[in-house]
Simulated scan of single mutants.
Amino acid sequence: MNTASLAKRLIGHALFWPVTVLVVMLLANIVFTPGFLDIRIEQGHLYGSLIDILLFGAPLILVAIGMTMVIATGGIDLSVGATVAISGALACDLISKGHGLPVAIGTAVGVSVLLGLWNGLLVTRLGIQPIIATLILMVAGRGIAQLITGGQIITINDQGYKLIGGGYWLGLPFAIILVAVALAVTAVLTRRTALALLIEAVGGNAEAARLTGIRSRGLIVLAYVFCGLCAGVAGLMISSNTLSADGNNAGLWIELDAILAVVLGGTALTGGRFSLAGTVLGALIIQTLDTTIYTAGIPPRTTLVFSAAVVTIVCLIQSPAFRARFSRKKRRRPAPPVPTNPQQEVAA
């Protein structure tokens, strides 16, 4: 295989452009922060900007993994932000009232799973479109979280709970380890078994999958339950990192970032084939973009516009149609027409 063919295959790989964009963004931060890529060890713990990106991006990565499964089935979940808020509010409220850590975490995760089950049943049993079914919980869930907190910010002081989102284990932030384990388990279940094939079949054509004997409804419900579980654990991360629960702002708009991460990773919103690695890269791109905004000193009033511009550029770069239209490939000149009249040949 020659170099040109290898380069063409490399550029054509689904993860080439997400990786390229992420690397370019990380290198660009060196201009504003010379030691941006440095990683140091203090008191046995790893610190540095790269560690911070992984730490602060951990909840988004976890939510995006769950969102990937839902989108792969042809659905969408707009309620993950509300689930994040409810999970954190429940855990902090129970801890503040003297309940043990296992009870608080178990209740929060259990309720998150039930919320995912609720979404799945609305979609499969009642036939409500996913965007409407999850929009119901997106609106009502935020109100439920505020009812749990009483409209106030609940603060706690539990170092055991702090470990989930702000603690360290084996020198690494525990949240990063938790996300790595969740990603590994999801990858094994979907890529080492037939589960991925079944999910992609449902996302491609749920009715055709059902006619071939696949339990489409069960898989769709399972995807929403898993997404609710991921959002619930992410809610624990966010609230434990600050040892507080804010029913109004916790997880606000994280559903949009999760959907964007899935799209940036190459998974189509129409369902079917999905990429967990691409989703993780998409989430890291979003978190790196947020970090870049702060390190570059971009004024707060233009932050959203800058983010939208960068995301637009990234999406265009990843678009095969856009690259094909604006590529600088030389077009071959058409060969001159062959004369059909013998007199023309003599004249020539």
Rank of each mutant, 00 (worst) to 15 (best):
G265E: 10
K330L: 12
W253I: 13
E255R: 03
T312L: 15
S319Q: 07
F322Y: 13
F326T: 02
R323K: 06
F306I: 12
A348V: 03
G271D: 13
V310K: 00
I285E: 07
F274L: 12
I285A: 10
A324I: 03
N249F: 07
V338N: 07
S240N: 05
A347M: 09
L316V: 05
Q287Y: 04
A283K: 06
T279D: 12
S319W: 01
L304E: 15
G272M: 08
A309W: 02
F326H: 03
A309G: 02
T288I: 04
L276M: 14
V305C: 06
F274K: 03
R331T: 08
L256P: 02
A335T: 04
R331E: 10
G278K: 08
C315R: 13
S244I: 02
R332Q: 11
A277F: 12
T288L: 04
A348D: 09
A283E: 11
G282D: 08
P336R: 00
F322P: 06
T340I: 04
A308K: 00
V338I: 14
Q318F: 03
P339H: 03
Q287S: 10
A347S: 10
W253P: 00
T295G: 01
P320D: 04
N241D: 06
R323V: 04
T312C: 09
T242Q: 10
G247L: 05
G266Y: 11
P299Q: 11
A277P: 01
P339G: 02
A250K: 05
F322D: 01
S307K: 15
Q318C: 05
P339T: 00
P342D: 01
V311F: 13
N248D: 15
R301I: 13
S319M: 03
T291W: 06
G271M: 12
G278W: 08
T292G: 14
D257T: 07
T242S: 11
T291P: 01
I254V: 15
A308I: 07
A335E: 12
V311Y: 05
L264C: 10
S319R: 07
